[in-house]
Design a protein around this nucleic acid. Structure first.
Lengths: 233, 233
DNA sequence: ACCTGAACACCGTTCAAGT
DNA sequence: ACCTGAACACCGTTCAAGT
């Protein structure tokens, strides 16, 4: 005689570390990273929360594994990018890699917040940075300057920036009263908002377009680094 | 007849929102941000955790208030910095303000992680950014370019960067076996470590000196922005 | 008006027990 | 070898009760 529990057990594939990690990524994608609890992830896999401990050491290990999956994705996309052909091409190659990493981050908006909390680096991410370092070297950077360069890029090197302003600028529906208040309290920001709202939405580069701002900052840094490289040699 | 409870009640000052917030900052400073729980903060103030809810709406409100205190500190230090005297002085003024903000962050190492989780901006932080915008304007930036500039600076504008590498480089005690492994797996990083360990500790700028790296990246951005300003006019 | 104690709905994690 | 259920030690938060 077959109970429903038996049927469920037969229907589902056996659990594995990889299945757990993939389920965690899907759960974070659909319901946000705060939904990724051991209990919730268990029910998502049709299993008790405690069963997960057979495949991951603890929640920290789970998140480490999740980040590994994300970085693996980055590395496979980066592998498709063409390597730098010489010192006049390093900027393009670096840009391609970083924007490939960014495309992965845009697919998993929660990933930056998880990456930030990781204590140590996995081989996957060390490999990614090793690749970036290789691009700098082909570009003619000394190890010393390349090292500074990686620090200067910071999290931008793997495709994200810390956005301090939550995108309140998305709908620019500020009452004229609020705006007047803003102008008196914060004259510069107030006037900036006035100028922007006057020029309209299809202005220059778009108001707070994350991708545009990311690329602006990235190119600013890459151009600066290229100048530092030339000054060095 | 006076019980010990009465004595405690008499000894302590009355609770207030400000006393709660200040206690939270001190607790975070001494025991780390993860120690700041409602229960722990309550005992720290000689009161039940639930009493705190008379002075803060909830934990989120508590953290908002804590950030406000930090930003107030930044603003008072920034107020001491001399304003820009003209378009040839904006970079110095911007640098002074950002490094003043950074000095506060260095006093409260946990602050960046809390600031990152805040959803909305308080008047205090809007005021800080209004000041930065004023410096850009004195420097001759258009509002459009100044806006890009703030995004490009990102969290650096308030004195911190997302450090991806945990400071494992502090003690450089890597065995030659580990190093050999590193060189084969990650040739570029491996060779960089060899070069660095060869040159010794009192090399050029110090290995992963956070302050040095922060200033390197900051100056890279400020120099790039100054060029963008000149190209604009 | 402010503080308390018990309770609720969550966490991550352990451990002995099942198959 | 893998999964389960109960339990533990924490969270933030509510609510009725005290003063």
């Amino acid at each position: 005689m077959t109970t429903t529990a038996d049927q469920t057990a037969q229907r589902r594939k056996p659990l594995s570390r990889n299945r757990v990690l993939i389920a965690a990524v899907h759960l974070a994608d659909s319901d946000g990273i705060e939904a990724v609890t051991m209990r919730r992830l268990g029910t998502e896999l049709g299993v008790e929360a405690m069963s997960l401990y057979n495949h991951v050491a603890n929640k920290n290990d789970l998140l480490d594994g999740v980040v590994d999956l994300i970085v693996d994705d980055i590395n496979t996309r980066v592998a498709l990018a063409s390597p730098p052909t010489g010192s006049d091409d390093w900027k393009r190659a670096m840009r391609d890699r970083i924007l490939a990493a960014r495309s992965v981050m845009l697919d998993h908006k929660w990933a930056p917040s998880v990456i930030e909390t990781r204590a140590s680096l996995s081989p996957a991410i060390i490999g990614y940075f090793d690749g970036l370092l290789g691009v700098f070297r082909t570009g003619g950077f000394s190890y010393d300057l390349a090292h500074h360069a990686l620090h200067a890029l910071g999290s931008r090197a793997i495709g994200f920036t810390q956005e301090l302003f939550e995108e309140s600028g998305s709908d620019d529906t500020m009452t004229s009263e609020q705006l007047k208040q803003m102008v008196t309290s914060f004259p510069n920001i107030g006037e900036m908002l006035e100028v922007v709202s006057h020029d309209g939405p299809d202005d220059t580069v778009g108001w707070c377009d994350d991708q545009t701002e990311f690329i602006f900052g990235l190119d600013l840094l890459l151009d600066g680094l290229d100048r530092a490289r030339l000054a060095e040699s």
